[in-house]
Each structure stands twice: as C-alpha cells, then as structure tokens.
Write a protein that binds this DNA or RNA. Sequence first.
DNA 1: CGTCCGTTTGACTCATCTCAAATTTGGTGG
DNA 2: CCACCAAATTTGAGATGAGTCAAACGGACG
Lengths: 251, 251
Amino acid sequence: MFLSSYANAHQVAKAALFKEAESLHGLFSRQPIEHLAVGQSLFFEGDEAKHVFEVVEGTLRIFRILSDGRRVITGFLYAGDIVGVSLKERYLYSAEAITPTKIRRIARKTFDEAVSDSDDLRPEIFSRVCDEMAAVQDQLVLLSSKTAEERLCTFLLKLLQRTIAAGNRDTTLELPMTRQDMADYLGLTIETVSRTITKLIGKGVVNVVNPAARHFIKIEKPGMLAQLAGDDSECPEMHRDLMVQGDRRHH
Amino acid sequence: MFLSSYANAHQVAKAALFKEAESLHGLFSRQPIEHLAVGQSLFFEGDEAKHVFEVVEGTLRIFRILSDGRRVITGFLYAGDIVGVSLKERYLYSAEAITPTKIRRIARKTFDEAVSDSDDLRPEIFSRVCDEMAAVQDQLVLLSSKTAEERLCTFLLKLLQRTIAAGNRDTTLELPMTRQDMADYLGLTIETVSRTITKLIGKGVVNVVNPAARHFIKIEKPGMLAQLAGDDSECPEMHRDLMVQGDRRHH
DNA sequence: CGTCCGTTTGACTCATCTCAAATTTGGTGG
DNA sequence: CCACCAAATTTGAGATGAGTCAAACGGACG
C-alpha cells in the first residue's frame, strides 16, 4: 500500500473506526508535548536520526552550514509538519526553532513499526514524502533560474497560499523568520532581500503593516504577486507539441 | 518494514530464495526491453504517471521547461536507476534520452501492489527515495551558494565517484550530455560552463581526451577537483560547539 | 536615554550573463 | 577521400544583477 496515494472505501471506513491509531497525527498525539525556545535546536546535521517529530505549534528552519560558514536553509517547518521521515542513518540538516515551538517526538523504531504495520499510515507517509519531494524540486527550479524579485514573490506567494488554505481571508502574512533566514533560503543576501521588498512596496504589490512591522506583510495585489513569481505554471504543453529536434532555447 | 533501511538476516535468506521476485531489479526483469532513440521522450511533465521505469542502459535527462522557455534539468538518470516512484498523480518533469537508451516499464498499479505485498521491496524503495531526496538537497546547496567553478567540480566529482564505485580504475569520464545540458543542470549558461572547463584545463585539473573530444574528460588531479568542489564535508560540528546566539555569518 | 540587533540604504565591485563571432566536430553526399 | 553544412563548442567584449563593504536608521529593552 505504501505506493498508492489514496485510501479506498474500505480503508476509509477502517480508519474512521480506529481514528487515533490509524492516522499519523493520532500516532503522535499520545506523546508528550515538548517546548523549544527561540533559537533552540531540535537536532543537528549528522546526528543519528533517532526520532521523528511532529510540529504542533511554531516555526522551525532546517539548514546546513557549509565549510566556509555560509548557511543554506533548505526549508521551513510549520504546525502539522512532520520531520525526519525520509532519512536513513543520520539527519541531513539541522533544525532550529524560529519561534517558541511545541513538538512531539516518536522513536524512529516505533514509528517505522507502526507505519509498517498499518495500511492506513503508509499512504499518508508516502503522500507527505511526495509533497516534500515536489517542494524541494520547486525550490531547485527557483534557485537555478529565478531573479531576486521572482524568488521573493514565489516565497511570499507560497506563504499566502498556505494561509488561504488555512481558511484565512486576510492577506496579511506573518513572517516569523528574519530577513537573513529568507536570504539563506532564497539564495540571496540580506541586502538584496531588503531592497527587493522595498521595490515591491514601491510597486504597490505588498505593504508593511504598521505595528510589529517588518514581520507582517500585507499582500495588496495577489494577482500581480503571482505574475512576478514567474511560474505561470510552466509550460510543458508547448514543449510537447513544438518538439523538433534542435529547438533548444536560451538559458 | 517500509522504514527500515536494511534487511535482517532472515530477509536476506528469503531474498536469496526468491531473488527474482523479491528485488526491484527482479521485478522489472520480467518486462520487455524498450528502446529510446537520442532525444526521444520517455514521458512529459504533467502526464498522468501511469508507469514506473527502470533504466537498463543509456542516459536520460529529467527537466522542466519554464514559461519563458528556460529549461531546468533536475537530474540525470543512468543504468540501474528507477524513475517514477515518488510521485502522485502526475509526472513532475519530463524525461528524455540523451544517448540511445534501453528501459523497462511497469504499470504503477502493478508496481504499487508488488511493493505493498513485499517486505523486501519496501526497504529497497525507501532507500532509493532517501537517496533521491539527499541528491536533490545537495543540488539545492550547490545552486544556492556555489560558484561556477565549484559547481562544475562538484558535478565532475560526482561522476568520478560513480565510475570509481562501478569499479573503473581509469579516471577518464564520459560526459554523454551536452554542455547545454550541464549548464541547465548547474544553473549556469553554456558559455560559463565552457569557460570554466577551459580554466580547469589551464590549472591542470582535467584534460580533454583527443578522439571523441569534449565528451571525454580525464581527471588529472582528483584531489584538487575535490578541493575545488568545496564541500569539504560541510561542518555542522563547529556549529554545534561554537553555537552562540548571534554569530550569523556572511552569505 | 543609550545600547543592541535587525533592517534599510548607499556606493562601488565583480561574477556571470548577453550578444556576437570564430572555431571545431560530425555527418553527408559527391 | 574531400568539400561542405549544421550543430556544438569555444572565445571575446561589453552589460548588469546581485554581492560586498560601510554607514544610517529604528524599534526593543533595561
């Protein structure tokens, strides 16, 4: 079952009966909540991957430090996310709380057994791993060919979609991370992030909200933001149709 | 068992008994071989993900085309690789033969069932998905913070490791892909790739082999290549130890 | 009120991109 | 085997987006 994305009717019924035991969230819900202070680490790159974590509340950054001291943030974790699944022996990155955070943990061994025993858990895990893979690939596209403005807009757009999906009608985003975090995530410098935001404000696309300013950004023109983000859903279609041997396009 | 990376003794014995049925390669080996000509597509981004493929021989590129015509190559596939696993409904990228290629295919449905029924297949799949995830993350680090020279060296180094792992003692690499492919993979332009190779030749690190030149590169100084690649195995250690709140380093 | 930290702004530099042309390679047909 | 063409690659010269270094700004907090 690991590979099929959706449960069939029978499984849905079964899942309803044993809800607590048969969903990932249920699996974690038995564990005690642990608290992380701002800046506190959940685990370090290279540590033996002994646990799987569920983020109950808060935001974390996951990152690597390069030999020359540069930091690359490979993602952020929000409430509901699960970390530590698609790993073998060791964590491939460090994880650190950006805000006060609550988490639950399960020993990998326990987690593995539970997942291997449950026909309901496997598709859920699989689905999440697929989403993670898709996200990393999008990030790869962003880093390999987008301009600073496109990167920022893509980032803000994704956050916007997340809050909209969460049922929020207001287009004001909270950015729990610092400008430096955004820079390290987007492959830019802090100065470029700052300048680009200023430019977007100038265009009327976004606006900084008064109070706890800088960490709250209002999206004034979501449509234009999507435009500027530049992934007008790519375009494999034209590729398929116009495919002639040597029509390689410029970089 | 999906989540444990290594089979235990019992499973190894069992796998030996039913080898053909209990390994991924075995699963594919019953399927007929299909041939792809150079430039021919295996599938397109957005297509319904109906099959899983094993590359028997040859090299493919997997890529996306952006709305403005730019192409981002997210990876290459070599003999022994399997494509199409970590997907839900649709392929996230197109796949195209770089050299004459032989593949085998299995319907996703069949594949999923086989994997779900076998305690031996799941860890193998899981292991491969983990490797894929690790590779994408490395690529992400490369794109977000490495210079042109570091990117090229990282790329060549990885190819070198692959051929060494394959038991090859010669340090001459075959580069089946074009310079444009390398550029699109490394987030550079073809001109920068070309210039950087020229520079590496100037330093005596690599050399272009005479005959089918350009597609065969000899690594003259593997050690220096590794140096220039720049991932002296990162350094989370110092981070863990010297962790003081505000010591963020420059980008 | 003054210090600290994160952020913004400014001025200048540089790696990489762009545009353009020269060169090499591989294939094709005479 | 050679002339020739098309594609791939290399090389050159100039443009530029983002980086670097440095300074100013602003809110938070004791």
